[in-house]
Nucleic acid binder design. Sequence first.
DNA 1: CTGAAAGCGCTTACAG
DNA 2: CTGAAAGCGCTTACAG
Lengths: 347, 347
Amino acid sequence: MSSEKRTSIKDLAAALGVSTSLVSIVLNGKAKQYRISEEMVKRVKAAAKEMNYSPNLVAQNLRGGKSQLIGVVVTDISNPFYSSISRIIEDRANELDYNVLFSSSDENLENTERLIKVLVNKGVDGLIVVPCDGSREAIAELIDNDVPLVLVDRNFPDLKVKYSCLDNFKATKLATQHLVDQGYKKISVISYETQMNHILERVSGYTDTMRKARLEQHIDVSRINLSNPRSEMREVMERLSKQNTEAVLCLTNMLSINGIYCLKEMKKKIPEDIAFLGFNRSDVFNLLDYPVTYIKQPFEKIANEAVNMVVDMITGSTYAADEVFVAEPELVIQSSTPKKYVSAGYD
Amino acid sequence: MSSEKRTSIKDLAAALGVSTSLVSIVLNGKAKQYRISEEMVKRVKAAAKEMNYSPNLVAQNLRGGKSQLIGVVVTDISNPFYSSISRIIEDRANELDYNVLFSSSDENLENTERLIKVLVNKGVDGLIVVPCDGSREAIAELIDNDVPLVLVDRNFPDLKVKYSCLDNFKATKLATQHLVDQGYKKISVISYETQMNHILERVSGYTDTMRKARLEQHIDVSRINLSNPRSEMREVMERLSKQNTEAVLCLTNMLSINGIYCLKEMKKKIPEDIAFLGFNRSDVFNLLDYPVTYIKQPFEKIANEAVNMVVDMITGSTYAADEVFVAEPELVIQSSTPKKYVSAGYD
DNA sequence: CTGAAAGCGCTTACAG
DNA sequence: CTGAAAGCGCTTACAG
């Protein structure tokens, strides 16, 4: 780290003319337990301060088998939703005396597997993972190996694993019901290609609500391939426009932003031409001429609980309220989903 | 990490009936150098694969004195600019076989000092830091201790330290000149309270250009306190409005977004009521009715070079092109800064 | 009250 | 070609 090497416990012991054990014991606050004299404690601490000693965590880790490191795999740290989550994870982990190793999988299986492997080899004490499509086996293996693990944002319902997620079904149920209540019938959803449960549940929340509203004939879900979101989004929006969709619900923040981009390109006005409902807060939603109605998830709570859970698994503490955390969605109603004027007698 | 402990090099050696040294040598690809038999190499590798061996990096680190970890201190990982930077740092570090420990200082000195200390104790091989106001001493100490260090986004010109930053003077010079060329005279700047060089240089780029354009009488710099940006921004905007400012230049992305929020609240139209020039790309800029002209910084290059530099310092490699990197700004001209109509004969 | 010794998992001179 | 030994910095039984 520096040219003159850091002072070690050995250096302190030598300087004081005592054994390294003594120094270690004192510095770990176990002086009383070992009945070390007050004076000795003072001398050791003074020397430590004077020689600017700080413990080598790598050695402590090797010895203790703990690294005080939590590995985090999100899909993309530069995605606002995940960077917000990451910030909360960082803060909560710091509070509990952990540091965080972040990495981005780009929603890709191989990356996810590689990153998990690296993090485990790095000696992280536990893992917080946003699992991607196809990562079920990788996650199952971690569980088999008893690696402390918490899934965030998504989970595998058939795996016995801790997770901290939104109530996704309820989220889109709220959103769809709001659109129905506002008088919209032709309500379409824009999703992306994935088998992950969070999206499947969001889709269910929509279809279920549509059926209950006797609007099953208008159920319409488009699935975008993430490799080329903008152009696929454009195609979808063109189609929705042709079929006179009245309201569109986007299932992620990224899809929402892309959707707004395309509508702007197409010179379609929100909400005159089409009502719009987005996912997760964004400055964009609030700064448009028609502030966008969106589903808000309490990501602070989700992230906090994820850290609590993983630390509980590592240390046996009980910071988390429960084995799993399912957060309540909230609908922030703004101007992009106004009451629809329905002319009497016509559809 | 797991209930049945991980297989170590010792387990492999025992299973194969050879020494641990042999196993270590083979696994590190030094078989040729030590002239180990082909067959032995195969046996060792097969066993390693079969027993699912992966090296304990903590032990390797202790032994080698390297952690393959780079510590990063940004002001806030959830700020889009820094999360973008962080993502590039992550990717480049991974390419060079490093992992990254991110942390957020919130522009606060004590946090910065604490985080740096923790990261150094964690045994990071090097540091990439966005320094905050007042952190000069902390940075100087790192340099004194020969900690491999690169500053990003800002630097201390009087310190002999590597850095990777934007050409801030040029950035605001470009921006101000553009506004002048478009016919604006009453051009105000919104900055925030700091002594950091990047902001001072941005201010200089503005004042310098104003002077050269003989507009010194219109030089006007407002400095917002970050503890309460929204309400202070509102006050500033009210004042600019009263004094009939024609164009406003915001010196960071956060200030730009806040500025747009306030103008919207005040029902002031861009660019009819006031022309607007922002800093760093944002979806918000592109999705407004009048897409916003902004200063674009090549953050990919800045982040890449920062990693190259710090790895060079750690390993003596030569990935970086130079000792310091000063990136070229680019002005993305959109609709928020149109040519101003100047009636002949009048000011 | 305090020290000598072992050991965490690894790598690297040093022998043979 | 291969093994025994030392040591990275630390902590913790074990002696005394």
